[in-house]
Design a binder for these strands. Sequence first.
DNA 1: AAAAATTGTTAACCTATGTTAACGGAAGTT
DNA 2: AACTTCCGTTAACATAGGTTAACAATTTTT
Lengths: 193, 193
Amino acid sequence: MYTILQEQILKRVKLTKEEFALAKTYFIPKKVRKRQFILQEGEICKSLAFISKGCLRNYSVDDKGEEHIIRFGIEGWWISDLHSFTTGSPSMSSIDAIEDSELLLLEKSSYDKLCAAIPKIEHYFRILLENTNSAAMKRISDLISVPAEERYLNFLKTYPEITQRVPQSQIASFLGITPQSLSRIRKDLAEKK
Amino acid sequence: MYTILQEQILKRVKLTKEEFALAKTYFIPKKVRKRQFILQEGEICKSLAFISKGCLRNYSVDDKGEEHIIRFGIEGWWISDLHSFTTGSPSMSSIDAIEDSELLLLEKSSYDKLCAAIPKIEHYFRILLENTNSAAMKRISDLISVPAEERYLNFLKTYPEITQRVPQSQIASFLGITPQSLSRIRKDLAEKK
DNA sequence: AAAAATTGTTAACCTATGTTAACGGAAGTT
DNA sequence: AACTTCCGTTAACATAGGTTAACAATTTTT
């Protein structure tokens, strides 16, 4: 269960076996079933969740009750409502499982202690956050400058695994369009060829 | 010139005078005039820029030659193309000055050395990146779920200073709409009252 | 196996936003 | 002061994407 976590960390910093063994003790394993929440809007996000298996989504709900997917997460990714987690304020988004999943939870106090105990872990998170940030900026850039059809094609290229695992309506939601629009776009693309 | 930097760092971590004096030595001051580039698309982003005075923008240019503002930066903020900076790959965005500005540049090698030399600075950047990330996620959430009119109102509330300092056409660009659309939205808002 | 819920598609119609173009005022330049 | 560029507004028209609703296919639940 910790293998993927170890791999992901070793990609970015060189931890000894001993250091990793110590790091492991800060995490709490948790299994969740499909559709189960790990965070509901209004709750405080108490943990960063490392996904060792499965697929989850982070989404917000608008005035009309429509869900908008802020991000997906699969094996090897972290998922949380970072704003709620870091500030301790109520979350404005929810997180639930798209598939039965296995998580390693890192609570706020553990996160702080772990970063203080092993500086290389703080370094790991700094690098991780740099990467997450780059991806977020790319997504923002796309949302303000790239038409939906092209955003869809980019999505297929960037996240082929996710494409296979989640319903199209959720990909539409992630892209910021309705499922009907995505269906129309797919039809147009099929005709073009 | 370093006062604002010191304030911003002290907000997040407690540095001694000596540590800050050491940290200062890693930065290179630079003044830029309005319209001057600090990064052009295709170049490698060699520095993180701390803005001690002025206002800059980070933007991309689409196929049609339209500019899309990814983010603004004013006093106390950092600006860069983080993806290019961290990976050393050519940037897909540009950064230029909206006003005459004063910067403190932190080159990649200095950034790495500084974080290694003063762990509290690495901690500072980790926290900074957490905050930047939260803001980016909020913006993504808005772009996929909030109509343009409301995004504009949110912008006015969130960035009142920027509203005063940049042309409306650039705010439109940041919001992901055309200047004409923003003008129309403003007209509608004025009529509603 | 039957019933219910979820998913993807299509179509008719509607609305927000983009496009193009023109105008006037403000600001910057010579 | 004259000239030029930039800026915001408006209007007519075009279009991408949203809305509503119906239907079939699939999956899940009973």
